[in-house]
Design a binder for these strands. Structure first.
Lengths: 356, 356
DNA sequence: ATGGCGCTTGTTAGCGCTCACTCCAAGACA
DNA sequence: TGTCTTGGAGTGAGCGCTAACAAGCGCCAT
């Protein structure tokens, strides 16, 4: 029985020499045949197994090269039960923070030989998060990173089965036991203190959405700093993260002469604020000082250049990867929290208050 | 031989009733056993095959539910030779355009049941692009999207083997035969004409990096429009995409009183430009009018609000997906180019030139 | 009766890889 | 000389799924 049993699946043409497989990608057995070894030896070469004679190794490598062979990941995943796949769940946003984080994570993961699959959710509700995580579990992802900036997202995460390593980013320090995040409170403290030290009696705050941990943390840090020095805590302007809402808040604040210092929960809010002040004839930093948060690349070119707080998203990403990988390898099992401390970037939007 | 031959691989505990698999995720055969059917029937239910009795279908679904069964994608990929995986090659940037594109693509692909794996490259050189594409081929990606904004990237793409569908985004209209891109020239024409129609004698241009197709297209559109109306074509200020370089260009332009209208190749350049003008005491739009490109969310809150060109990245993404999927299914084979026309968003940074 | 057809279901053979084995030859040591 | 070890290779089973085929059933036309 040398002839193929199924003529429709003839892979080898026997009139050419050497035989050339047609119709499909070369597999390990094809390499083995060409190199005159068994498929197992090919596997050993591919996986860097030590007990292979140098000469054999070279023959196998040559055969791989000649055939243009590429290992089939699906087969490997099936055989080992492990994948080299890392899942990420992120919200559908082009906000600077999340984008930077994602890019840095993808780069770091690729450097470690992992494939990253990103699943975006339109809204941060329970069902969406759960579905996205489920999706990655179906792919047999080795580990999952979930960006959970709101309480609702965090609650969804709490119910995820624990048979696959999961690390939360931007989550709740009180709740998530495996978490990497920026120290929002520390950042807010930096911003607030910077304004107080410039001589302002107190600092006003334009806050991000109340259900975001980032916003809540920045609010807390701001409030605590004021209370520590015995400064009056003015009412908070609620906003979302957009320049538009910063502008609206700014329009109100511009009318109040007692407002001389404002800490905006992010740089885009600060941008809106700057424009409102400008329109209302209040000079920044002459009349009003402003500090932002995020250090977007453009912040240095706002009018005036914005003093802001810079969270190191690269570090957040690499730490998240580090924690995830060590959980995957099983060497870390308890709760692991990493909190990245941001730094203050001083530019030209802060000055002493105007003389009364 | 009822006892397992290998005691180390005992999956079934026979003292409980019904048998419960331990140690591994449930597989199709487990569902089949519980439902009292063959695994093939389970497969048919999962794949929506028509010829399954309703009662059987329900029994299978109940068993799936009870066991918490999730199909193993790796096994399916191996068996079918096809994956539901779409690879994306993108540069490591947090620029607004690429980020939006990526997010929109991921969302659209997920809606179609595809998994998206993103591979970032640090630099857009030949080797990096080739390696990233190769990586996706090794994953047996069903199709690949490559964002190729520069000539070097495009050259690398030209050498990619064609056994997997590839669509280029942001590439060269002259070269790539499967391409989705924004009509940069049309956008630039819109911007330039808008300034000319406001009464300016000519329009200056701050250009993006020369090796980017986007930058080259915008430059061409600008130049052609000026030539069409017989306006003088002033020298171009070369820049990269950053606000910093826009600022530097702006500093020069601010010193030249004959400059009354500037078209910046993107919004960030325009932002830097605005600050330079502001610092040098040239009012926008009183003395100088400015138009940008991209319509970043903050553009409406620049000082003054920026008139700009808006490319619809969502459409680019969905078109790219559409082209890719139709190539994967084999229904489209020839060259397919889709060019998305941008629109002008008029705000407050354009006005007639100052009276001489 | 007999054959054929449509519907439903089961059986079997892979997909390409890894893992746990076995096998063999060449030394080391008693 | 016999036995044990060790490096280098091969063999066979099986990961969980799909595709192709076969088989059983009831129904109709012959």
């Amino acid at each position: 029985m040398l002839a193929p049993t199924n003529p429709g699946k003839e892979f080898w043409v026997d009139h050419s020499s050497p035989s050339v497989r047609v119709d499909r990608d070369p597999a390990m057995t094809d390499v083995a045949r060409l190199a005159g070894v068994s498929h197992q030896t090919v596997s050993r070469v591919l996986n860097g197994h030590p007990n292979v004679r140098e000469q054999t190794r070279l023959r196998v490598r040559a055969a791989i090269e000649q055939l243009g062979y590429r290992p089939n990941r699906a087969a490997r995943t099936l055989a080992t039960g492990k994948s080299q796949l890392l899942g990420v769940v992120a919200q559908n946003s082009t906000l600077f923070g999340p984008s930077s984080l994602l890019a840095a994570f993808e780069l770091a993961a690729a450097a470690q030989g992992f494939v990253v699959s990103v699943r975006r959710v339109r809204v941060l509700d329970h069902g969406s998060i759960a579905a996205a995580v489920e999706h990655h579990r179906e792919q047999r992802a080795a580990g999952i990173v979930v960006i959970v900036p709101t309480g609702a997202a965090d609650e969804a995460l709490a119910e995820v089965p624990t048979d696959v390593p999961v690390v939360a980013v931007d989550g709740d320090l009180e709740r998530d036991d495996t978490l990497v995040t920026v120290d929002q409170e520390a950042g807010a403290r930096l911003a607030t203190r910077c304004l107080l030290e410039a001589g302002h009696e107190t600092v006003w705050h334009v806050s991000g959405p109340a259900d975001w941990f980032d916003a809540a943390g920045r609010l807390r840090g701001w409030q605590q700093t004021l209370e520590e020095v015995g400064a009056e805590v003015p009412p908070v302007s609620q906003a979302d993260w957009s320049a538009a809402s910063g502008y609206r808040a700014g329009l109100m604040l511009a009318r109040m002469p007692e407002v001389t210092a404002v800490f905006a929960a992010n740089d885009h809010l600060a941008l809106g604020l700057l424009r409102a002040m400008h329109e209302r004839g209040r000079s920044v930093p002459g009349d009003v000082s402003v500090v932002g948060f995020d250090d977007v690349p453009e912040a240095a070119y706002f009018i005036p250049p914005l003093t802001t707080v810079r969270p190191d998203f690269d570090t957040v990403a690499t730490e998240a990867l580090d924690v995830l990988l060590s959980r995957i390898s099983g060497e870390r099992t308890g709760s692991t929290r990493r909190v990245i401390t941001p730094t203050l970037v001083e530019r030209a939007s802060v000055a002493p208050p105007p003389a009364p």
